[in-house]
Design a protein around this nucleic acid. Structure first.
Lengths: 213, 213, 213, 213
DNA sequence: AATGAATGAGCTTTCATTCAT
DNA sequence: GATGAATGAAAGCTCATTCAT
């Protein structure tokens, strides 16, 4: 909720500290036991806080979950914009950066992926989750679409940039699902390279084969 | 659906009929309210049966859910093998068929996608779900991998068939996620064509551009 | 219910056969898992009959239990009157017989004792049970009292026959409790001899020490 | 009782207070409706507490029952040791004391006897109950046996002290059963005197007739 | 700001009973 | 007579939330 609306860190001390403590614990618990088996007691125990504290810092369990998803989304946003800004001012390099960001060590963890899919598994009927998610993610999709448009304009006649953007998005999401479901047989870096490899197929002129790994 | 709305013949139906009735109701409810908010009362109400039947026909709620996932997985299996068998005996045609199957009208419904992601959202810590899922799905992945191997051997030097298989799988799963999360802005047939289009990029000789409609 | 009121065996075939089958199964189940954990399903499974049969032969679970207690009480009644009738026509011999009957191999079994105490554990607030029990047992108590009176009149001045009767009754019941609670450290024949020994203390002239084996 | 009716100070009482409150209510309910008909709702209503407290202060219904039996057993233990310690240092006086303790006004109440037999009626298949009971009661039996040995050695040749101990125990238990089953025709003090009278028969030298009543 | 006892709605499950077959 | 599918009341228990301390 408030986290979602607070791109900058407030450092009012205790309040924000506690909230973050609880959010981190919530991520752990959701990742460990999923949505339906996570209770506030689990969360507070994980956070080593007392039982009543959640309803003190959040209006309700739902509010904590909103804040938790907001935290994940913000974190994702921060990472990909960082990668993006760090990349050379060139559509191909930036597209490459955005994809790499998805598999960054910090956000592409087991725990976070499990939490993401837990939220998505609920998204359909908790419009709030979708809204929070979109607040951050729409921008990323738009950016990808724009980059695809720019690249496509540069020598790929007849290519539908929207389709490309959708495919890239799907590839990335699908890789996440695979990483979450089969952690022992799939691998973060391999998945990233798979996605990057796809770019060499979609835009061979801009992503020569050698570039990928 | 049709079973769930079967004529109000109250009592004494064959075991399998009731089980299927409950499974269909479970899919509806999970799709509608997700895992953590679906109660057995919701399920039995949806199935227009009395409260006690679930524990009469299933050992527990968990057993009903196992059966429900099993049903979804079997249904998926039946569809893709049917498509597969109906396709010409040719690797490219069969790969095309497997992908089309994923977007078949019958299984690629809103309701089923939501149910799938609800299960996946729980899979990490309910090993049963993963096991059930894999019982059916491993074969499909192997088949895709084999087809990719066959096609790759036919004029694509240096192509890694495993990578291709992973990419195809991810594309398909990612498309499902997209379809589930954004039903109003995405479209089943469009997603299918996206995936088929990717094939023209991966195996241009076998999937000429014209082929994907 | 009807058993309690049916001292003679009706041999109308099926009906009575089934009822007895269920009663025997009820005794087994009550002895095995106690009152609160015995369900009609346990009883019918033990009797190798179908689930619905209880309510066909008995009005309710309670009616089955009434009949079961009635059966136990009748059985007890049959045994002690048999012992009594077989004894020489002499107060001391008859008192001896009544006590021996309580420890007869047939009724003083683990299973039956457990069932008795299960019923007694409920007796206080199920007046029916007390009534059924008393229907049979009052006569026995009266007989004991009469025998004590007869014996006491024969040379034990100042002895209260009522008190004696109560003590004999209590000794016997207390022995049953002990046999039930500690089957491994107590013994049916030893308990019987304890009770008989008490008689040598209460009525030394009529029960010389040598008599209790 | 007095605890259960403590001033309607709703919230936040020390853990032990609440536990005792619930235990007392459990005794009342078990005595009133027996084991199989006592529900946690009955208990909490009797205790004038909310439904959820039981599972807050006890792990389960079974844990409450264990604690309840433990309470009864402890209470019994406290009483007989108090009587014992208060008696003159003399085997006969002490045996007399132990028996009197069983019929003390505080523990030999209708309610408690009913509760005891409810527990005993379950003991056979809930080993926990037997264990709890024995934890306290074995010591008492041993003490009785020792006292019988001491007394028997003092002029009763050929008397088996074990048998005497068993008889005394059985008499006492049997009297309790009688008091529970027939509260209107039996009487606490009378039963006590019956038991004490038995001592005058078993050990006439140590318990002269005059002493009993 | 923080604690944890208390509440009570609501969950899954059990089970006596009914009744179509 | 007999079966077993179906019912629904009620059980034990969980847990988000409240609130005295």
């Amino acid at each position: 909720m408030s986290v979602a609306e607070a791109p900058a860190k407030r450092r009012t001390a205790p309040r924000e500290i506690r909230r973050k403590q609880l959010i981190m614990a919530a991520i752990s618990c959701i990742a460990k036991r999923g949505f339906s088996d996570t209770t506030l007691r689990h969360v507070t125990e994980k956070a080593k806080l007392s039982h009543g504290v959640v309803n003190y810092h959040f209006d309700s369990k739902e509010a904590l979950y909103d804040a938790t998803l907001g935290y994940l989304a913000q974190e994702h946003y921060d990472i990909w914009t960082r990668y993006y800004d760090a990349a050379p001012d060139d559509p191909a390099a930036r597209l490459d950066a955005i994809i790499r960001a998805d598999f960054d060590k910090k956000i592409c963890t087991h725990k976070r992926l499990a939490a993401w899919f837990a939220f998505w598994g609920q998204a359909k009927y908790r419009p709030n989750y979708l809204k929070i998610h979109n607040t951050f993610d729409n921008e990323r999709y738009e950016r990808i679409r724009q980059l695809c448009t720019d690249i496509a304009a540069d020598g790929y006649e007849g290519l539908d940039p929207d389709r490309l953007a959708r495919m890239i998005e799907s590839l990335s999401d699908g890789s996440w699902l695979c990483l979450m479901l089969y952690p022992s047989t799939s691998d973060r870096e391999e998945s990233r390279d798979d996605c990057l490899h796809a770019l060499t197929r979609f835009f061979p002129k801009h992503f020569p084969l050698a570039k990928a790994p």
